[in-house]
Every structure is written in structure tokens, then in C-alpha cells.
């Protein structure tokens, strides 16, 4: 079973994502901000990360940059999932090492399509 870390400061979004990912047979872990996510990754690297952008304490992009320099931090496949839907943000995310990018609102079809594209499914 593959693991996916869900990083979003909204509990509701985490719940929706968790349901979708469990249906896709992922084992899920949750984090409410970038710092929590980073701490989780230092303990166990997940196979995938579903990542919000705007969060208190540490943003998604800051987390991603920090993740990519951790030992083994280049392994997780990181999929942004955010309301930031302009090309500048997308470009910045790709440069920071994101593998895919979902513009909210999302549904299970989009998550499934994107996860398939990056080889997680």
C-alpha cells in the first residue's frame, strides 16, 4: 500500500482528500501546515504528498523547498492542490520540484487522473 501525506490547513479539505485517497487505496497521514508536514517527513518519507499552498506557520512552497533538500527528500511525488491557479504560481511550484499541480476545486476524477499521470496509480 502506498502512503500519501495530506497537507492542508482546512480540516474539511483533508477529510475530503482522505476519503478520495483511501478509495484509491492509499494509506494517509495528515498535516495542518508545512512545518507539521516536514516533521512527519523527517520521521517517515511518504510515497506521495498532496500539498496546499497557503497555510499558517509554513507555506506549501516553503515546505517543498525544505523537503527536497532533506536526505531522501527527492523521493516523494509532490502534487500541489491549491486555489492558487495562475501560471506564475504553477511555474514556481514546478521549479521548486513539484511533480503535478491541481487547481482547486478538485474532485476524485482529477486526483485520480493526476496521480495516474505521475505513476502513483
Amino acid at each position: 500500500m502506498k502512503s500519501c501525506l495530506i497537507v492542508d490547513d482546512s480540516k474539511v479539505i483533508r477529510m475530503v482528500a482522505k476519503k478520495i485517497l483511501e478509495d484509491l487505496e492509499f494509506q494517509t497521514v495528515e498535516a495542518a501546515d508545512g512545518q507539521q508536514a516536514l516533521d512527519a517527513c523527517k520521521e517517515v518519507m511518504p510515497d506521495a504528498v498532496l500539498l496546499d499552498w497557503n497555510m499558517p506557520v509554513m507555506s506549501g512552497i516553503e515546505y517543498l523547498r525544505a523537503l527536497r533538500v532533506l536526505p531522501g527528500g527527492d523521493a516523494p511525488i509532490v502534487v500541489f492542490c491549491t486555489t492558487e491557479n495562475d501560471i506564475e504560481h504553477i511555474q514556481e511550484a514546478i521549479e521548486a520540484g513539484a511533480n503535478e499541480y491541481i487547481m482547486k476545486p478538485f474532485d476524485s476524477e482529477i486526483i485520480q487522473a493526476k496521480f495516474t499521470q505521475v505513476g502513483l496509480l
Binding site: 501560471i87 514546478i94 513539484a98 503535478e100 499541480y101 491541481i102 487522473a113 499521470q117
Partner: peptide, 11 residues
Amino acid sequence: VQRGLPVQLLV
């Protein structure tokens, strides 16, 4: 654009 299109190609 989120169905099937890799984000790198979108950009």
C-alpha cells in the same frame, strides 16, 4: 486542462 494534461505541458 486538468484531465490528462501534464502540468509541464500546460505551462
